[in-house]
Amino acid sequence: KLLSSIEQACDICRLKKLKCSKEKPKCAKCLKNNWECRYSPKTKRSPLTRAHLTEVESRLERLE
């Protein structure tokens, strides 16, 4: 599967780190437990900047 097509777990399953069936409108866990089942939009991760990478590398060197 391509990364862009990976389905996201519902908010509660993601928060509780449960295996989500990803069914809509309610996944199996939410249906069974009568929880409100919501699927928040995916958040875009910002790409690493060179400055951040350099900072992490220098912190790693100090720890070694």
Rank of each mutant, 00 (worst) to 15 (best):
E55N: 12
L53M: 15
I6D: 06
C20D: 04
D11C: 02
Y39V: 09
K24R: 14
K19W: 04
R45I: 00
K17H: 11
R14P: 05
K22P: 05
E36M: 10
S58T: 11
E57L: 02
P47F: 00
P47W: 07
E36H: 11
P47D: 09
E55R: 09
T54Q: 11
P25L: 03
N34C: 14
C10P: 01
T54R: 02
S21Q: 02
V56D: 08
Q8A: 12
Y39M: 06
S21W: 02
C27T: 01
V56C: 14
R45A: 03
H52W: 09
C13A: 00
E61L: 15
K19I: 05
K24W: 15
N34F: 14
Y39L: 06
N33P: 02
S58N: 13
N33L: 10
C13W: 06
E7F: 13
K24G: 12
K24I: 15
N34K: 13
K19F: 03
K29N: 04
E36I: 08
K32D: 05
L60D: 02
E64R: 08
W35S: 14
Y39S: 05
C13N: 02
T54A: 06
P47Q: 03
A9M: 01
L31P: 05
S5Y: 10
N33A: 11
E36R: 12
A9D: 00
K19Y: 02
L48W: 07
S21P: 06
R38N: 15
V56K: 02
W35R: 14
A51Q: 12
C13P: 01
E64M: 14
R59N: 07
K26S: 12
A28N: 09
T54Y: 08
I6R: 05
E57V: 06
I12M: 10
R38Q: 13
E61A: 13
K22E: 05
L2W: 13
L3I: 13
K19D: 03
E23S: 13
E57H: 06
Q8K: 08
R62K: 11
K22S: 04
L31Q: 13
E57W: 07
T54D: 09
N33F: 09
K1W: 03
P41C: 05
L2D: 13
P47V: 06
S46W: 02
R50P: 03
L18S: 11
K1P: 15
L63V: 04
S21R: 02
A51V: 15
L31H: 14
L15P: 01
L15G: 14
R38F: 15
W35C: 06
A9W: 02
R59D: 01
S5Q: 10
E7G: 10
N33R: 12
C13Q: 00
C13L: 06
C27L: 03
R14G: 01
Y39D: 01
Q8S: 13
K26M: 13
D11F: 01
K26R: 15
C37H: 03
E64H: 10
L31R: 15
C10V: 01
Y39E: 06
P47K: 05
P47I: 02
N33G: 12
K26H: 14
C30D: 03
P25M: 02
K19G: 15
L15R: 07
Q8Y: 12
E55F: 12
E64T: 15
K19C: 06
I6M: 14
A9V: 08
S21L: 03
R38W: 11
E23C: 12
A9H: 06
K1H: 11
R50A: 00
P47L: 02
C13I: 07
R38V: 11
N34Q: 15
L3M: 12
S4A: 12
K19T: 07
N34I: 09
A9L: 01
K16F: 07
C37V: 02
A9N: 03
H52P: 01
R50T: 05
L60K: 10
D11H: 06
Q8E: 00
L63D: 01
E61I: 10
S58W: 13
L18C: 11
C30Y: 06
K42G: 09
R45C: 01
K17Y: 06
K26C: 13
H52K: 06
L60T: 02
K1T: 15
K29R: 11
R62F: 12
P47H: 04
L2N: 14
K17G: 00
I6V: 10
E55D: 13
H52L: 04
Y39K: 00
E57S: 08
W35E: 09
S40P: 01
L15H: 11
S4C: 13
K1M: 15
A51S: 09
L63Q: 03
H52D: 04
S46Q: 02
